[in-house]
Amino acid sequence: MSLNEEVEVLRRVPLFARIDPAKLKLLAFTSERLVFPAGSELFHQGDAGDAAYILLDGEADILVDTPEGEIVVAKAGRHEFVGEIAILIDVPRTATVRARSELSTLVVTKETFLGMASEFPDVAIEIMRELAQRLADTTAQLTAARAAAAAG
């Protein structure tokens, strides 16, 4: 995949949708591209985190350790972003991410990510928008779950 094609893929990542392609090109150029064979882990819950991954191709499972063993809490696919929480705030990985099929990713290091956010206000605003959206979704889910629990 050439740099320009990568930029096209990045533009389809919601977080980067509104960002100037030139800045995405810099991000693509300064970020490593890593291929994970099916079944291998991108990172494990509890590890220290220093990078986030943009999935360029393939699918991944997001798993959480529970007393009953690992359970899949979500799936991630093409154009999704995983692992960004650990690079925004210094907490260990909150979940494990494992490749379901061969997974092609772009590794965004903490340094690059924060660098972009601080240099390009657009990126920071986009991140805020995305996180706010997620928070809203989570709140809605929680409300729904509580309502269901109260009703049940």
Partner: peptide, 9 residues
């Protein structure tokens, strides 16, 4: 390419 990528930094 380098000029395109890096001159904004």
């Amino acid at each position: 390419t380098m000029i395109e990528l890096f001159s904004g930094l």
